[in-house]
Amino acid sequence: MMGTLVEAFSIPVIRHAFIGMTIAGATLSLLGVIVVSLHLTAIRFTLMHVGLLGAAAGLALGFSSTTGAFTLVLVASVVMGTMVNQKTVAASSISGLFMTGSLAGAFLLLAGTGVPAMQVFDIFAGNILMMTQTDVVFTASVGMVVVLVFVFAYREIQLVLLNRELAQVLGVPVDAIMTGMFVLLGLGIATALRLVGALLVDAIILLPAMAALRFARNFGMALVLSSLFGLTTTIGGFLVALFFDLPVGASAAMVATLLLGISMIIARISAH
C-alpha cells in the first residue's frame, strides 16, 4: 500500500491533485458554515448552474470552460449579493431567476454555436487530474483569502449570521459583509468546480459544514470541525480513488455523505 502511494505521488499530476484537494478540503469547507447559517443552499445551487452557462460561454468564445465558469460565477455572486442586500427581490426569487436563466442561456448557446454539449457538461465532472502547478497556487490563494477573511472578520461574521438587525445597530457594515460572503462563496464554488465538478461541489463546501454544525458548541468549533471534516472528505476521497481506481470527485462525495450520515446518527444517539 505504501509502495503504491510513493509510486503515485512521484507523478506530478497526482501530487498537484492531492495538494489541491487537501487545500480545498481544509479551507473551502469553511464557507459551508455561512451557507447553512444563512440558508443559502438555493443560492449555492444557482451558482453551480451559472457555472454551466459560464462553461458554455467560455467554449463558445474560444477560451476554456473553466475560465468561463469561474468568471461568470464570480460576477453572478456579486450581482446576487447586491440584490439580496437591497431586499427588493426575495433570495428565493433571485435563485429562480438566475438558475432558470442560466440553464436556458447555456442550452441556447449550445444550440446556437454548435459547441459539443458533452464538452460543456465536463464542468459537472471536474478534471482534478488536469491540475497544473498554477492551478494549485491559485487554489491555495483562494484558500488563504477564505481563511484570512474568517480570521480578520471573525466576530463581524458571527454578528451578521446571528442577528443582522443588531449588527446594523452596533455599526457593523452588514451589506458589505453580506456581499463579501457572496463573493467568497462564488470564489469557493468556482474553485471547487475545477476539483470535483459542479454536481459534487457540495461534498467540499456544504456537507462537512453540515456535519460540523451537529457537534459544534460555538462558532470557532464549527469552523475547526468543518475544516477537519473537509480534510477527511478530500484526503479520504482521494485515497479511495487512488487505491480502487475510482473517480476522485465521486469518491470524495461518497466520503462526505458517509461522514454526514454518521454524524447524524451520533447526534441522534447523544440526544437521547
Partner: peptide, 9 residues
C-alpha cells in the same frame, strides 16, 4: 438560529 455560538460569546 442555525449558527453555533456559545451563550457567553
Amino acid at each position: 438560529p442555525e449558527i453555533a455560538v456559545s451563550v457567553c460569546e
